[in-house]
Amino acid sequence: WVPDSEAPNCMNCQVKFTFTKRRHHCRACGKVFCGVCCNRKCKLQYLEKEARVCVVCYETIS
Score class of each variant (00 low, 15 high):
Gly35Phe: 14
Cys57Ser: 00
Arg40Glu: 15
Val2Tyr: 08
Asn39Gly: 11
Ala28Ile: 03
Arg22Leu: 11
Glu6Tyr: 06
Phe19Lys: 15
Trp1Leu: 06
Lys43Gln: 11
Asn39Pro: 07
Pro8Asp: 11
Thr18Asp: 04
Gln45Met: 08
Cys38Gly: 12
Thr60His: 07
Met11Arg: 10
Ala28Phe: 03
Lys16Ser: 05
Arg27Pro: 05
Lys43His: 13
Ala7Met: 11
Met11Cys: 10
Ala7Arg: 03
Val32Asn: 05
Cys42Met: 14
Asn12Pro: 00
His24Ser: 05
Ile61His: 15
Cys26Asn: 02
Lys41Trp: 15
Glu59Lys: 08
Lys16Trp: 04
Val55Thr: 10
Lys49Arg: 09
Val55Met: 10
Cys29Pro: 01
Val15Ser: 10
Asn9Cys: 14
Cys57Gly: 01
Cys57Tyr: 00
Val32His: 04
Phe17His: 02
Cys34Glu: 04
Val56Tyr: 10
Val36Thr: 07
His25Thr: 01
Lys41Val: 12
Met11Leu: 10
Ile61Asn: 13
His24Lys: 03
Phe17Trp: 13
Leu47Asp: 12
Asp4Tyr: 05
Cys29Thr: 01
His25Arg: 03
Cys13Met: 01
Ile61Leu: 08
His25Glu: 04
Asn12Lys: 09
Cys26Gln: 01
Ser5Ala: 09
Lys43Thr: 14
Asn9Tyr: 10
Thr18Val: 06
Ser5Leu: 07
Lys16Arg: 08
Lys16Leu: 10
Gln14Pro: 09
Cys42His: 15
Val53Tyr: 05
Thr60Met: 07
Cys26Met: 01
His25Tyr: 02
Leu47Ser: 11
Asn12Cys: 09
Cys26His: 00
Lys21Trp: 11
Lys16His: 09
Val55Leu: 13
Val36Leu: 09
Arg52Ala: 05
Ala51Glu: 11
His24Ile: 02
Phe19Asp: 15
Ala51Ile: 04
Lys43Ile: 08
His24Gln: 03
Arg40Ala: 13
Lys31Asn: 11
Val2Pro: 00
Pro3Gln: 08
Arg27Gly: 03
Phe33Tyr: 11
Tyr46Val: 12
Lys31Ala: 10
Arg40Trp: 11
Val36His: 11
Ser5Lys: 05
Cys26Ile: 00
Gly30Val: 02
Ala51Arg: 08
Arg27Ala: 05
Leu44Val: 13
Cys29Ala: 01
Glu6Leu: 05
Lys49Tyr: 07
Ser5Asp: 08
Lys41Arg: 13
Pro8Lys: 10
Glu50Phe: 05
Cys42Ala: 12
Ser62Ala: 08
Phe19Pro: 14
Val36Gln: 13
Pro8Tyr: 08
Lys16Gln: 15
Asn9Met: 09
Val55Arg: 12
Lys41His: 12
Val15Tyr: 09
His25Trp: 04
Gln14Cys: 13
Cys10Asp: 00
Tyr58Lys: 04
Lys31Val: 02
Cys37Ala: 00
Phe19Thr: 15
Lys21Ile: 02
Pro3Lys: 13
Gln14Ser: 09
Cys54Ala: 01
Leu47Ala: 14
Glu50Pro: 04
Asp4Glu: 03
Val56Lys: 09
Cys34His: 01
Glu6Val: 06
Arg52Leu: 13
Gln14Asn: 13
Gly35Tyr: 11
His25Pro: 03
Cys37Gly: 02
Glu48Arg: 10
Tyr58Pro: 03
Cys54Phe: 00
Lys49Glu: 07
Cys38His: 03
Arg27Tyr: 03
Cys38Tyr: 02
Gly35Ser: 11
Thr18Leu: 05
Cys13Asp: 02
Thr18Asn: 12
Asn12Thr: 12
His25Val: 07
Arg40Thr: 14
Cys13Tyr: 01
Trp1Val: 07
Cys34Met: 02
Glu6Pro: 04
Cys42Val: 12
Val32Pro: 03
Gly35Leu: 11
Gly35Ala: 10
Cys57Ala: 00
Thr20Glu: 09
Ser5Pro: 03
Glu6Gln: 09
Cys54Arg: 01
Pro8Ile: 12
Lys21His: 14
Val53Ser: 11
Ala28Pro: 03
Cys57Arg: 01
Cys37Lys: 02
Arg40Ile: 04
Cys38Phe: 02
Thr60Lys: 04
Ser5Val: 06
Lys31Arg: 13
Gly30Phe: 04
Cys42Asn: 15
Thr60Cys: 14
Lys16Ile: 07
Met11Trp: 09
Ala51Leu: 04
Ser62His: 05
Glu6Arg: 04
Phe19Leu: 13
Lys31Met: 05
Glu6Cys: 06
Val32Met: 09
Cys54Pro: 02
Lys16Gly: 12
Lys21Ala: 04
Val53Thr: 12
Val32Asp: 04
Cys10Pro: 01
Val32Ala: 11
Val56Asp: 09
Val53Cys: 14
Thr60Gly: 11
Val36Gly: 13
Lys43Tyr: 15
Glu50Ala: 06
Val55Ile: 14
Thr18Met: 05
Cys29Tyr: 01
Ala7Gly: 10
Lys21Met: 05
Cys42Ile: 12
Thr60Phe: 10
Leu47Ile: 07
Cys42Pro: 08
Cys13His: 03
Pro8Val: 09
Glu6Ile: 12
Asn12Ser: 09
Val56Thr: 13
Val53Ala: 13
Ala28Met: 12
Lys31Gly: 12
